[in-house]
């Protein structure tokens, strides 16, 4: 009996990179052989590549406890809580954009006309503070487990994501200092779009900030997935996650309410034009941050569903 054609071996091995390492260790060689048997010497087509990517990502999601019930209830609950944390990381990026978009909105019209917008803005601020408190509480509750993890040398497993986060944070801080020095040499108009170079640099810095938040979120998830959380701590984390998801939903609704109130009272402010004009009250930054918040709410909602569905099994354990 002849073996499969090995000419596309590296290609086939590359197709399996979508699968988690542990899964590849167990089934990778068999799956690669099956793929080679099916290809019978031909090159892998787009359909095969796509189906393996989909299957590999599904295995990753399953392995992380994000789908299915093959992982223990405790891991499913933890994954649900971590989804809420990821949703909050996205919300922080959106929140930064909202802070910029809503800057000086109180000067756009009379205090009476802006009453509803001001109320909605206050709810956004309360939501942001509550969200920060919840995320911080989650970190404090897990401190004991983090200490045990570090003492056991577990930091080696998370060195790569932590290093990435630290390096990008350093780059963000350096860029912020340079940008601040530059900004002090410009007038208000130049700082708000008249100077193309500064605008590009500002957008690059915003991208760096987003990357920093994303990388710290990823590092947090990487650490949290490895912690040995007791059942009680896990229940507290799950409760905090549910509260965090509720606050995130409230904050998103409040941003929508602020947007609607401003579109009604001072639409020119949303478009950055002068008072009295009638622009379309849906500028790109607001649409983008609104979309990001909606994605965050859906993600957090799915996390809560995972927690609630696995809660009974966790309580029984």
């Amino acid at each position: 009996m002849t073996g499969p054609d090995e000419s596309h071996r590296p290609d086939v091995d590359r197709l399996l990179r979508w699968y988690p390492a542990a899964w590849r260790d167990r089934y990778g060689a068999e799956l690669a052989t099956l793929v080679e048997d099916e290809l019978d010497g031909a090159r892998p087509g787009a359909e095969l590549r796509l189906s393996l990517a989909r299957a590999g990502l599904a295995e990753r999601a399953r392995g992380a406890g994000l789908v299915g019930d093959s992982r223990p209830a405790s891991e499913r609950v933890r994954s649900g809580a971590l989804l809420v944390l990821v949703a909050w990381a996205a919300a922080v990026v959106a929140g930064g954009a909202f802070a910029k978009v809503s800057e000086h909105f109180l000067t756009s019209d009379s205090a009476h006309a802006l009453g509803p917008a001001r109320a909605a803005y206050a709810v956004v601020v309360v939501g942001a503070v509550a969200g920060a408190a919840i995320v911080l509480s989650g970190a404090v509750v897990a401190l004991g487990a983090v200490s045990d993890f570090t003492r056991a040398g577990g930091w080696r497993a998370v060195r790569a994501p932590l290093t990435r986060a630290v390096v990008v944070t350093a780059a963000t801080v350096t860029a912020f200092v340079a940008l601040s020095v530059w900004a002090h040499r410009l007038n208000v108009a130049q700082r708000n779009g008249a100077d193309l170079g500064y605008s590009v640099a500002f957008l690059a810095w915003v991208s760096l900030v987003s990357a920093t938040i994303a990388l710290w979120g990823a590092a947090g998830v990487s650490v949290a997935r490895r912690l040995d959380l007791g059942a009680r701590v896990l229940r507290v984390e799950a409760g905090l996650a549910v509260a965090g998801a509720a606050v995130l939903t409230m904050l998103t609704v409040a941003v929508g309410a602020w947007w609607a109130a401003m579109a009604s009272a001072a639409p020119w402010f949303l478009d950055g034009r002068r008072s009295g004009t009638h622009p379309v009250p849906a500028p790109v930054p607001l649409v983008a941050l609104g979309g990001l918040l909606l994605v965050a709410v859906v993600t957090a909602g799915y996390g809560v569903v995972r927690i609630v569905r696995s809660w009974r099994a966790l309580a029984a354990a």
Partner: peptide
């Protein structure tokens, strides 16, 4: 059954 679906089911 594609290779991905087959081995996903085998693993389960």
């Amino acid at each position: 059954l594609g290779p991905g679906a087959l081995y996903g089911a085998i693993a389960r």
